[in-house]
Design a protein around this nucleic acid. Structure first.
Lengths: 231, 231
DNA sequence: GTCTATAATGAGATAGAC
DNA sequence: GTCTATCTCATTATAGAC
């Protein structure tokens, strides 16, 4: 009875080979989707990169759109857990600062995207696609929003004077800047030069922290009298 | 002889009707490219929206890629001029502040994108596509970089202590945040609520100004002792 | 689970009449 | 300059043999 033979239409557990094929297909899909975007990617290219026939991609992926979602969800879950774990560790020590909260969101992301191989590197560009196209709203809501909401609350605790609207807007700015490191590094290199990964992340963190701190008042460095509007 | 009949292969000036058709095609292309991205857009859809035959799109646009470029260049030139004009006006009055320099970059953009009709609104999403895909590097270099370089220099004048690398990186963060208002407004609304256009731009400006000011030293608000790293 | 073969559709591009 | 008609190719998806 170890196999529950009465379970309705359940096939038996997938073979080792099947699992490996499936992983190859998902990994290939990840690369191709990241490089060319959803529309630009073709099932054929994914199949070729995986070394299988196109029909197998359908069998394991269940259609292009379903495959796209599955590829993202796979890593989104893992990353969400890492972020929440980092936050828990931080909160266990003391009341976290704004910078610490932001770091719990940003650092696990780059730990993976920059240093955990081509799959994670592709994932970074992938979620940049998702975040900038309302077509993928359901993916964002399913995969990203639960974690985002936790961090929004946490930021609100550190900046109680700030309005929820400002914090939400700043959060989107932060995510955009973060993802720009994945999608627009060529622009960064084009406009300036010579960055180490660690530099970039520190720069991002400082930039976003200072930005968030403006949510508290309109003039965080107001003494300098540098707040004239335009026109 | 009013027509210079000897000019090598020059046709006569395009008719009024031709110019209107061309404009309809470009406007339609702008909408379709903005909504679906380059790969997702089809010449057929552009033709249908313009109310012409597909062959005409080729005739006026000269192929999909050429059309894409032309559609962007059309408005990029105008916007670049507006930004540089704003900067000139500002500099004529006094040595501009950081906020004023950034405003000269940001405000003309949103004046157009938010308040100058659907064409400009599409343009905002369009350049977000371009900025996040290295495939369009040549468009970015041709249409955006000259103006960007002017502003980078101007920012450097206001923040002479900051390194060029940091300013370049911050500039990319700023552009990403700016474009996120075009592409990710649905995310902003999803995570918070109730923004007027003016609010958003003011929030963006304050966010970026504070971010740029961190380029001067690692700890712009350092007295608060809020700079602990993560881990 | 895997593969071959193919269906069904839509893409970008162009030749040539008007 | 515009349109009809068509070429050629790539796309997703599926049916069915093994």
């Amino acid at each position: 009875m170890a196999e529950k033979p009465e379970e309705k239409q359940r096939q038996r557990a997938p073979s080792q080979r099947s699992l490996e094929t499936r992983k190859r297909i998902f990994d290939s899909a990840e690369q191709v989707f990241a490089e060319r975007g959803y529309e630009g990617a073709s099932i054929r290219d994914i199949a070729r990169l995986a070394g299988v026939q196109g029909a197998l991609v359908h069998h394991h992926g269940g259609g292009k759109e379903e495959l796209f979602f599955a590829v993202i969800a796979r890593r989104a879950d893992e990353l969400a857990q890492l972020r929440l774990d980092a936050l828990d560790v931080m909160k266990a020590r003391a009341e976290p600062t704004l910078r610490e909260v932001l770091a719990c969101f940003i650092v696990p992301f780059f730990d993976k995207v920059l240093h955990a191989g081509p799959g994670w590197s592709a994932y970074g560009r992938l979620i940049a696609h998702v975040s900038s196209d309302e077509r993928w709203r359901h993916i964002a809501e399913t995969c990203f929003d639960p974690t985002a909401k936790v961090f929004l609350d946490e930021i609100h605790k550190v900046l109680p004077q700030a309005s929820g609207e400002k914090i939400g807007t700043h959060f989107v700015f932060m995510v955009s800047s973060m993802l720009s490191i994945c999608t627009s590094r060529w622009r960064i290199e084009g406009l300036s030069t010579g960055h180490t990964d660690a530099d970039l992340i520190e720069t991002l963190l400082a930039f976003c922290q200072a930005g968030f701190e403006t949510a508290v008042s309109q003039a965080v460095c107001g003494d300098k009298g540098c707040r004239m509007g335009l026109g």
